[in-house]
Amino acid sequence: MLTRRHLRVKVMQCIYAITQSKDDSLDKQEKFLRLSIENTYTLYLLMLCLLRELHAMALHHDMHDSKKYMASATDDFPDKKKFVNNRLLLQLVENPLLNEELKRRKIKGWYLNQDYIKIIFKEIVSNRYYSSYMKKEEGSYGEDKNLIIDLFREVIAPNEKLYEFFEDDKLTWVDDIPLVNTFILKQLKNVKQEQSEQYFLPRLLKDEEDMEFARKLLSKTLLQNKVLEDEIQGKTPNWDKDRIADIDAILLKMAICELLNFPSIPERVSINEYLEIAKEYSTPKSSIFINGILDKLVKEYKSNGKLKKTGRGLL
């Protein structure tokens, strides 16, 4: 789920937190980093729980409608239980491995925040995709899947109330929301009717090396802070660190640290990664500024033998 770029962003967030709080405890920041990474998976599971809660609310409404004597909007639907019987939703609701994982992580879903479920459910039943789907008497797994994809993309992912809820709950979730939503959409598009139950429980990291990469990048950047600052100042004679955006300074230090301490990652890969992060998280001109300094440093490191790279490396 998380790529090396996402891990670099997590490290950047940790270092930024230090600059704002003036708390330079390495142990504390390493714990924060690990928790931030782990919380990404919690957010992912909460979004799956959201789909399950929507199914539960649809089931409740269906049972309520069946006891009504007055006509309702659902009377126009040939099969009122069609959404409740949506095969993709049932894959989530009836997944024993997902149930076990939620229980193991003590994720109790949305029972204390049902107002959010009600808001989204109301938007869903008034959505054109839902109406079109419910007016068809019969359907296939493909149609069931396409409905959930369309509703997730148009109703759930851009919901501002959900965004505010996650923003208030966990600090790092603000940056994780687009990542998790994109990942879930990809999963929904690729899921098959006869999919294994493990499918909705992907690995958070590719392997333990990724976690070690993030931990090492954080610790070495923090421990070598003065040295890294001197490296930057040497390439910008008129450098006034108070005038450089905090994020730019952090990204520069991380990039230099990576160039010098991670021999398996090619210098071009490192530079490109930090330029992309700068475009997303810093000022419009940051990537140009960062690229200029890193290009000078790479040439210098190559000439004096400080840049030692082996292997192809990974993003």
Rank of each mutant, 00 (worst) to 15 (best):
M1G: 06
L2T: 00
R4C: 11
R5D: 11
R5N: 12
H6V: 09
K10T: 02
K10C: 10
D24F: 13
Q29Y: 12
E30Q: 13
E30Y: 02
S36D: 06
I37K: 04
E38N: 13
T40C: 10
Y41H: 01
Y44T: 04
L45S: 06
L45Y: 02
L54I: 00
L59E: 09
H61R: 15
D62H: 13
A71G: 00
V84W: 07
N86G: 03
N86S: 00
L90H: 00
Q91R: 08
L92G: 00
K106C: 04
K106T: 10
I107P: 07
I107D: 09
Y111I: 08
D115L: 08
I117P: 01
I119K: 07
K122P: 07
I124R: 07
M134S: 06
E137P: 02
G139H: 11
Y141H: 03
D144S: 00
F152L: 04
E154T: 11
P158I: 03
L162F: 09
F165L: 12
L171D: 10
D176G: 06
L179R: 10
N181I: 03
N181S: 09
T182S: 15
T182H: 13
T182V: 12
I184Q: 07
K186M: 06
K189E: 13
E197Q: 10
M211W: 05
L217Y: 09
L222M: 13
N225V: 05
N225F: 12
E231S: 13
K235C: 08
K241N: 10
D246A: 15
M254H: 04
I256G: 00
P263R: 11
P263Y: 05
R268Q: 14
V269R: 15
I271P: 09
E273T: 11
L275K: 14
E280H: 09
K285N: 12
S286V: 10
S287W: 15
L294A: 04
K302H: 02
G305C: 05
K308L: 12
